[in-house]
Write a protein that binds this DNA or RNA. Structure first.
Lengths: 109, 109
DNA sequence: CAAACATATAAGCCCTTACTTATTTATCGT
DNA sequence: ACGATAAATAAGTAAGGGCTTATATGTTTG
């Protein structure tokens, strides 16, 4: 519970940076090597590696080594802290704006 | 479309700070004046006001003035950018871990 | 009106962070 | 083995963020 809060913290901090969100989004389209991401974005390779390390530390991403390439992919379980945090306020939402779930229903379309 | 991204950015940045999340959580328990929040937390009144300004700028919070008191309350609509961002990856989730919606179903219990 | 109160803003400080270039480590192809 | 490629790490820098104290603005009370 103290460790869980730390994970929550890392997730929120990791997603706070727009470059990191863009990299994360790019990875949802499929596994990618660092060199691919370096080609896609306008920042240096070390910057990419540092962002990936932050995402990995938050549990949002996993990596696999194959030869001299390092492939990164999204770990969907990493989103759980975020989902949990949102769910925590559901009671509040329903009390105040009724069926905010309509927003969430988009998730079931 | 440039404005929407800017809002998303402000929301993620606002929630990145644990003090701000704590203040937000405190506000979900009910409207509160700045002095109440100042009493609840161990940071100065200006720090509270600055956090509230960030939350307000992100659209997560609204404020109402009554005499010399400023009451802040959560604006649930401010969560929409966050929900939308999560929903954006739903297709990916279902492909990779099947019914992650179970996590989200907690929102409908 | 004056003093106390509630909040916002200003200015400054320190720590964090996101980036860069340079270097290291490891792996592949020739 | 050598040179090229892929990624991680190191070190330094510049900007941003969160906090503080001090001050300004507006409001209630005596």
């Amino acid at each position: 519970m103290h460790g869980a809060a730390a994970v929550e913290d890392r997730v929120f901090r990791a997603l706070a940076d727009p470059s990191r969100r863009a990299i994360f989004e790019s990875l949802t389209r499929g596994e990618a090597a660092v060199k691919d991401l370096t080609a896609r974005f306008d920042i240096s390779q070390p910057a990419i590696s540092q962002h990936l390390a932050a995402l990995k530390d938050a549990g949002l991403v996993r990596h696999r080594r194959e030869g001299r390439c390092a492939f990164y992919r999204v770990d969907p379980r990493g989103m759980k802290p975020l989902i949990d945090w949102i769910a925590h306020y559901r009671a509040f939402w329903t009390k105040h704006i009724g069926r905010l779930e309509r927003l969430l229903e988009g998730l079931d379309e």
